[in-house]
Design a protein around this nucleic acid. Structure first.
Lengths: 186, 205
DNA sequence: AAGTTACTTTTTAAAGC
DNA sequence: GCTTTAAAAAGTAACTT
């Protein structure tokens, strides 16, 4: 039997950083090829990196948000590319700006089908949200670690809201043990 | 001081008017849906609780009133789908769903997931199907749900597929389109649920 | 009927309305 | 509250072919 922990896969990492300098997004948009900038729609400029794949949102304040990376290493690599592109445009960028991981989205597989109706009752209707007319997943909010888990009938799940890869592992362990205690796994 | 007193009266009047508007809207929608008086009363109680707990701030009165009615229908065991509810409300389906989840959580309504069987009598009646078909549909729902087929599936689509299957088994066939129309789901959904259900029942149709 | 695209849920930062 | 970005899960829906 595969340990559900070993099925954990990081799907998306969101991080924030800043170059410590104000930017004229209009000119950055003109000089940076592939940049999408529509201030009427959104105040940030969108710049996509190909390898590793990610999308960076660059703001007038010089703050940057990076999304779509598959690991924390990829976040750093993507942002290094963004910093270099800005330097190519003669924009001063700090040596290495602090990068803060804000959210990690993970998927995992419990390896067996789940009876979501029974789980909703078992975990306590006051702690969960399960509205199959609106969304097929059961929403389970954990306190420790502070993450949100989406459980599906297939046994697959999504863990989001964590800041460290370890948060997802701890969450999966807790979910597995709670479901086992309730006799709702297998 | 006179001004402050007038302001209080004005505020009180405004609050009274808002409550009256919300309750009349619940009444109007309940009538349009044809639900019994007990449901309107439960909806009124939920709305007043939401008002007392200050859950309406930042939300529309109509949105909370509609959500209270949706919750009341479920609490009373005669659920209406969000699609049906949105047809008698000027609030869009997505907003009703969001507001419902919010007040449900905040008021601790502890709503159980909707049992698809609750839709069988009304849908079958609209389709003029016999008691026999209803029983068969209920049997299909119960048996297949026990096997875990219900997880994550919409209750209306699940009920629609079971009714379609039962109508075939009882020689009172209704087309997928006819059932889809009363349940307000697509034929594709009925087809998908139907296939899973007959397979789990060991039937070959 | 199959295939594609797209929307539902959750999370998170950013600046501005 | 909303706007934008990414990503997974599974269900439902609306298109086209």
């Amino acid at each position: 039997m595969t340990d559900p922990k070993e099925t954990i896969n990081i799907e998306n990492v969101v991080a924030s950083t800043g170059i410590g300098q104000e930017l004229d997004l209009q000119s950055v948009a003109m000089d940076l090829e592939g940049a999408d900038y529509d201030p009427e729609q959104f105040p940030g400029l969108v710049y996509r990196t190909q390898e590793p794949k990610s999308a960076a949102l660059i703001f007038r304040s010089g703050k940057i948000v990076c999304t779509g990376a598959k690991s924390t290493d990829d976040v750093h690599e993507s942002l290094r590319i963004v910093f270099d592109k800005l330097r190519d445009l003669d924009i001063q960028v700090e040596e290495d700006p602090e990068i803060v991981v804000q959210n990690i989205v993970t998927s995992a597989d419990l390896g067996r089908q789940l009876n979501l109706n029974a789980i909703a009752i078992g975990l306590g209707l006051e702690n969960i949200e399960y509205e199959p007319e609106q969304f097929p997943g059961l929403v389970y909010r954990l306190d420790e670690p502070e993450v949100v888990a989406l459980l599906f009938g297939s046994g697959k799940l999504v863990i989001t809201g964590g800041k460290r890869p370890k948060d997802a592992e701890e969450a999966v362990d807790k979910i597995v043990s709670r479901l086992e205690d309730l006799g709702l796994l297998e | 001081r006179l001004r402050k007193w007038q302001e209080r009266i004005r505020t009180k009047d405004a609050g009274e008017r808002n409550l009256q508007f919300a309750l009349s809207e619940i009444d109007r929608m309940a009538s349009a849906l044809g639900v019994p008086r007990s449901v309107r009363e439960v909806a009124s109680v939920i709305y007043r609780r939401a008002l007392k707990e200050d859950l309406i701030r930042g939300r529309s009165i109509e949105g909370v009133a509609t959500s209270a009615l949706y919750a009341a229908c479920r609490k009373e065991g005669i659920p209406r789908s969000l699609e049906e509810i949105s047809e008698v409300s000027r609030v869009e389906r997505k907003e009703i769903g969001r507001t419902y989840r919010y007040i449900s959580q905040e008021l601790g309504l502890e709503m159980k997931p909707v049992d698809p069987k609750k839709y069988v009598p009304r849908f079958c009646s609209e389709l003029k199907l016999s008691e026999e078909v209803q029983s068969k549909a209920n049997e299909i729902i119960e048996t297949t749900a026990e096997k875990g087929l219900l997880s994550g599936k919409s209750p209306t689509g699940y009920a629609a597929a079971a009714i379609y299957a039962a109508s075939l088994l009882c020689n009172e066939k209704k087309t997928q389109r006819e059932v889809a129309d009363v349940a307000q789901v697509t034929e594709v959904t009925i087809r998908n649920r139907y296939q899973e259900q007959i397979e789990a029942m060991g039937i070959h149709g």
